[in-house]
Design a protein around this nucleic acid. Structure first.
Lengths: 141, 141
DNA sequence: TGCTTGTCAACAAGTATTGTTGTTAGTATG
DNA sequence: CATACTAACAACAATACTTGTTGACAAGCA
């Protein structure tokens, strides 16, 4: 994800206003590879800024998504997750025990839709989710 | 998916009871490739059986899932979908306009996790979602 | 500084799913 | 066929996640 300063400039360019709440969220997401949920982002933002509302987090993240600065993932865990890594194409490893998500920086060139299915369908995006168990969770059995 | 008669036998074997409500759901799912949501299954079941409750649909589908007779998909559309096709390995084409889902009967042998990621992660399942637009929705622009 | 307008927090509503409960009915057994 | 056991039922309520509404406020611009 881009730096807080760059995002501030981009938001202003787009006619969006930059508030302390939004900058706090920018800072939290910068370099975060934990794929946080909206709720966990909210909790962390609240540490610095006790009055911030969950709605503001949703709004800001969706604005970032519309600008293509973050990805919002639905991995079937009940709540969506924010992925600030939009620079590198990657897929996801999801531990179904602890819910942790890791990036899988691989380009699956084999992942094309066969011609006969492409004839009447235009693919915009491919999402691959590997579900399984991380070592930490496998050990506890 | 297996036939209603076979499912009836399997349910009885497992100590689960076979009720008219459950058999109605078995029949609706048999050979259905529309990937219905719980709600749409419920609506169709209600045509024959006006008193059936949505909870019963959820329960029956989850029982079927536990027995491995159906798959429950979360494709990020807000509600889960029931996929009775568990015989053939396949992935999914999702039209983000109309929400329709089609099976993609392809085995992506290239879809393996690189060794260095497999070292501390055990993959149980791979889900691939191709998002895009079907012809019908592309034409309407 | 003052005006315009997007954003804020608080609150409420919406959607999907699951829990609770008293009653009904499927199933095995005698 | 009658009985007892207990899972499943419908109705209702509750939960979790996300979004809509609203009035006050403050950022950005002249």
């Amino acid at each position: 994800m881009k730096s807080t300063e760059t995002l501030t400039a981009i938001f202003r360019e787009q006619g969006l206003r930059v508030t302390p709440q939004r900058q706090a969220i920018f800072r939290l997401l910068e370099g975060d590879d934990s794929h946080p949920t909206m709720e966990s982002l909210f909790d962390r933002a609240r540490a610095d800024m006790p009055t911030i509302s969950l709605k503001t987090v949703y709004q800001t993240v969706h604005d970032l998504e519309a600008l293509g600065e973050v990805r919002v993932l639905d991995l079937g865990t009940g709540s969506v997750r924010v992925d600030p890594n939009v620079e590198d194409e990657h897929h996801h490893l999801l531990c179904t025990e602890c819910g942790r998500v890791r990036d899988l920086p691989v380009d699956f060139t084999g992942l094309n839709v066969p011609v006969r299915y492409r004839r009447d369908f235009t693919v915009d995006d491919v999402q691959v989710i590997f579900r399984g168990h991380c070592d930490h969770c496998s050990d506890r059995t």
